[in-house]
Amino acid sequence: MTKSIMIVGVGGQGTLLASRILGNTVIREGYDVKVSEVHGMSQRGGSVVTYVKYGEKVYSPCIDKGEADLILAFEILEAARALPFLKKDGTMIANTQQINPMPVITGAAEYPSDLQSKIAEKAKLVKLDALSLAQELGNIKTVNVILIGVLAKNSEIEYEKWIQSIKETVPEKFLNVNLKAFDIGYNL
């Protein structure tokens, strides 16, 4: 049975690193893995979507609507945008942070209100304020690894395997702060 995980957010939030940690973790379980990333123009502050799929044999690297077992959303509007991709009984893990998109900044559109409760009406929602947690830790760039910690807690893969994969994926000089960030998410 293939597991499908989507990571969504805003370009620059570090979704790519999160997907690589996840990818490197599931290989340790001996699965076939595909990770589909977005590079180039869409990375510049736009909506970004990464797919991670694993199982006995994975064909398509992409995830269709209604297929994701789990969505890890780095921003709440992006969580709402990704909702149609979630399976009926899937879980949405969402950072409650709001980042205004340009149409909202220019006044051409409004940032929708009450997104958390609207999403919770439609799906199982695990929410957290990862930005505040990262600020408390003293490095706002650790939002991505805090979220990976929450994802890890909601997965069947053991703690140690995640730690090994973080050690392999994150550059040495940021390793300590990221290990702390992971624990914050994992122990929420």
Binding site: S42, D64, R81
Partner: peptide, 17 residues
């Protein structure tokens, strides 16, 4: 296609900037 749920309102786009 698979069953899926969406919010009823239109969500503002997030183009690259």
């Amino acid at each position: 296609a698979n069953e899926s749920s969406a919010l009823s309102e239109n969500l503002p786009a997030r183009p690259p900037v």
